[in-house]
Design a protein around this nucleic acid. Sequence first.
RNA 1: GGCGGUGUAGCCAAGUGGUAAGGCGACGGUCUGCAAAACCGUUAUACCCCGGUUCGAAUCCGGGCACCGCCUCCA
Length: 450
Amino acid sequence: MQKNLILYNSLSNKKEEFKPIKDGKVGIYVCGPTVYSSSHMGHARSAIVFDVIVRFLRIVGYEVTYVKNFTDIDDKIINKASELGVDSKDISEKFKQEYIEDMRNLGCIDPDFQPCVSDNIDGIIDLISRIISNGFAYESNGDVYFQIDKFKDYGKLSNQSTDSMLTNHRIEFNPNKNNDLDFALWKKAKDDEPGWESPWGKGRPGWHIECSVMSCNHLGKNFDIHGGGRDLIFPHHENEIAQSESINDGCFANYWLHNGLININQEKMSKSIGNIINIRDALDKWNFNLIRIFFLSHHYRTPVDLSEEKLLEVEKSVRKIVKKINTQGNNSGDKGFRDLWKEAMLDDFNTAKAFGIFFKYINEGLINQSNIKEIEEFEFVMGIKGWREIFINQKENINEEMISEIVIKRNNARKDKNWKLADELRSQAESLGFILIDNKDSTTWEPIDQ
RNA sequence: GGCGGUGUAGCCAAGUGGUAAGGCGACGGUCUGCAAAACCGUUAUACCCCGGUUCGAAUCCGGGCACCGCCUCCA
């Protein structure tokens, strides 16, 4: 069946056939977090999406190098540190470790490389120097700016013309800049700020430059896929392109993939609204498999509305499907499943369609324990693990003696056809948090779903 | 204002030229003393609106409308 991989390239705004630079190999760079606070569900979605993309690329035979950076030097980190009166390194280190843990708890495979800005200062200084000597940047009062009017392709990713950008009133006037749209490659450090010595004095890298350096370090100056959230298209990715291509003869990443953002109860998730959901809080409440299935039931490019209700829906449908897989017999397996879901994935990583196919095949009894290998392959790509056992072993913390007492009493009442008492005992059980199930010749019980 | 995206059943969501996947919910039935679960069945002549192309369009083209995002830090 092996069809070609098609993906939507933000650079052309079209679906394109994927052609790797080197046969059988894929280099992918995904923008990681700025580590100044706990990571949230937006990070989770992006991480899960690219995790599945990498897993899928591997399973169809590509040798993938997956790089995700940490931006551990940034104004927000510095501000947070000074607010708390601690070293900015303490902040970045703490949240970096948290992020790594969160990602693992979400079932994401570690990227092959997770470089930090602070380990790449020399490379950054070197790159900036080369951009300056190529005539695309200038030093001004200890800052270094990229001169966007020197780069004729500026705006090609976000489809913005520089003229229209200049009419934007939100750009702040900065006397050090030649042009309001120029952006910082290097920022002069104030006395109390962390900084590194450079040809332009003590300072720190601007945002954007680190990704140009670190992607090139691990993947080369021209690599296959660059990913990140939609919100990074401008200015971050636009500026990365400008920096990198200004010294690399117009070559950088070939395909740009952007995942959609999330809303919470129909509202944008943002600090000002105060509706940010941290990954840790979500994981306290929901099994990571449910979170993954929720996100993967949507196409990665569309915005997603996250709510308690939606997660509950996922839980219900998963509960049913799990029961089916675990109880259904050994029907003859249907080999169509593997080809169908992979075909869906080959078309711009359509996980939503793949899950639709998965549910359908299970519901129709076409895959079950006898096709466990096929199920496991699907599970591996989607990164869902142990989800078939989520709903087992929930019987702890329940007083079994009390329950069997109620069951015995009720069964006696039923024998006497005392339905009123039997019903009372049933509601008594329910108020204690479990439900009685009358089978042919026995009564069992289960905890009531929360 | 510029750029991009989205608009498919009560809700969520696939579907980019061949006659509407899947999930949740709802309804009817089987089973049950009653339930629960399970199973069977029903649930969009129809894809924001108006034109056009085509034998044929949710899918392509033109024109509207609505919502959202980005354009300042953001996954």
